[in-house]
Design a protein around this nucleic acid. Structure first.
Lengths: 348, 348
DNA sequence: CTGTTAGCGCTTTCAG
DNA sequence: CTGAAAGCGCTAACAG
């Protein structure tokens, strides 16, 4: 029924091995023979059987990209950059790799299952993006899996994710703590003393690091955080909206709201506006990430720009072995404070 | 070196066949035997070899999702919904399917290559999202490939993409033309007579249909479009910004700007504001899609809401054979006009 | 440069 | 309910 390599060989009057060699291009073959084989492939409309070749060669051309939320541009931008570097279709010739992005939805279980699926497929490489869940049991399970996979020859790169020790994984970490501190220092520098903070989900490394940076800045300035100034939520707009309403209820005298990321900040702006507060005259707002839409907010959002595309591209190259991993297998990627219209001097 | 099914069989003192049956759960096995096998799997830390089983079974558990731009939430939202329905990890038990999203970047070549890769992998199903490129040669190539894949047993669903005849593919199409018309009718109803239009890339079906809807509305109202009122660009913010500047240069008397999508509309707003035009007092702006950030624009964006998540979920279910395809293999999904602050009565 | 020869690790009849 | 046997379609030594 389906055309196999043997059919092509028969038609081209060569051995299966030769067909395999011209298809893989990793072995010298006479030009005339190649010609003949290629013609046969074309005439028969032959399609290589991926599983069969992966089985025989004991490797596959799959590269996995794990993301927490594919609908969030934060991950989309990284995924896009990673993928453009893994030499997938349209990339440089030869390596026809299938970049597969897997959406974990932030669920530890899914993360593990996807890792297993990728392990089953004998993926050539896997890039895990974004913050990790801090549950020790889960982290141990992931670490063990990563270890197994590196041992099996799969290259693992963490992009925007804290390092996983003893796993053989290369990590490009974002300096969330430093960024968070810079942002809050900026606000304090403007004169703010009463700052609300809308954090992400409790158990995420990203959440914790950004919050810690914020608190470091507060502590350094001798500002004591009052209970109720921090609210946890999800990394989305709606969460920012609701959290801001809650913050306003708890302490109407806040002069600034720092959000876990830009989407949350946008939700915060909406809530503030509805509550009749002007930005930044009454309340300053700051985000994190500097996603494309952040500059379009009115006023434009003060935020910390993370070089998502650059980091993703680098992760992709490292995953493909086309770039040397950083010394110690760990590099920290810094963010850049982008001061825009949403933050200003507090009133009064 | 690596643990194989035979090792598990030996350890559990059963035949490889039995282990296979336990693992696939599609065959009666005595509870005690299953128990023993499962224990052995655990103790040996066995991982099924995906390619080997795909080869032997002649099918795989891969489901492909093709998107034009993974960094664009338009696609991210659909991909996320599709994936949640294909019973991937975290979904209902049993089917552990690997949903792989492939980013074509809008390139016809990549699209074809990814399709081939998926074909190679003997993907169980493929969902193609978003507009198609209109080049006849490319469309023929895609159609032929899709036909081949359906013949080989791969289920194909088009989501937000026009139907591909005679390919056996099910299509859930967005009513871009109707949405475009409704939007422009709304503007005309407000009193606008001079409307600029920022279209997407020339060769996309989505672009053409939305533009046609716009022109239908113009024609129905007896408004003659002046040359220069339409500019083509990409589906991103920057493009909207630049196109608006161009539109303003060509005809400063325009009272409304209709954008190809919400991102473009945001760029248009930015350009307008910088040019000192108030929205909507001086110029009304409308988008398309109703992505999450659109409601946060100031003023909030008038747009056409497309039920991206619903359509994606349905496409996913159809791809998995869990929902009956629509009659004739074709369903049209309508958008809903969302009138918000960015459109108003023209001045004067 | 090309053919021959063994498998890769699993599933699946077909018997028991 | 379980085992034995026969490949699935390809690649990779190893000879020539």
């Amino acid at each position: 029924m389906t055309v196999t390599l043997a059919d092509v060989a028969a038609r081209a009057q060569v051995s299966p091995a030769t067909v395999s060699r011209v298809l893989n291009g990793n072995y010298p073959v006479a030009a005339s023979t190649r010609e003949r084989v290629l013609r046969a492939v074309d005439e028969l409309d032959y399609v290589l059987n991926g599983p069969a070749s992966a089985l025989a060669a004991a490797t596959s051309d799959l590269v996995g990209i794990l993301v927490n939320d594919i609908a969030d541009p934060f991950f989309g931008i990284m995924a896009s950059a990673i993928q453009s570097e893994i030499g997938g279709p349209g990339g440089r010739a030869g390596g026809e790799r299938l970049a597969v992005v897997c959406n974990t939805g932030g669920s530890p279980d899914r993360e593990l299952t996807y890792l297993t699926l990728l392990q089953r497929q004998r993926a050539a490489a896997v890039v895990l993006t974004g913050g990790a869940v801090e549950d020790p049991q889960h982290q141990a399970a992931v670490a063990q899996k990563l270890r197994k996979m590196t041992q099996a020859g799969t290259r693992i790169v963490l992009c925007g994710r804290p390092p996983a020790d003893d796993t053989g994984a290369v990590a490009l970490t974002f300096d969330n703590r430093g960024g968070g501190r810079a942002l809050t220092e900026h606000l304090i520098g403007l004169g703010h003393r009463r700052l609300g903070y809308i954090a992400g989900p409790e158990e995420r490394t990203t959440t914790r690091h950004r919050l810690e940076g914020h608190r470091e800045a507060l502590a350094a300035a001798g500002i004591e955080e009052e209970p109720g100034w921090t609210v946890h939520g999800r990394y989305d707009r709606r969460s920012g909206y609701e959290a801001t309403l809650e913050l306003l209820r708890r302490d109407p005298s806040l002069t600034a709201v720092v959000a876990a990321n830009d989407s949350v900040a946008l939700g915060a702006c909406a809530a503030l506006r509805e509550a009749g507060r002007r930005i930044p005259e009454d309340v300053s707002v700051a985000g994190f990430d500097d996603l494309p839409f952040s500059i379009d907010a009115v006023p434009a959002l003060t935020t910390v720009r993370l070089p998502l595309a650059e980091a993703g591209a680098r992760a992709g190259r490292i995953a493909m072995g086309r770039e040397e991993p950083p010394p110690g297998g760990l590099a920290t990627v810094r963010g850049e404070l982008m001061v825009r219209g949403s933050t200003g001097v507090p009133r009064g």
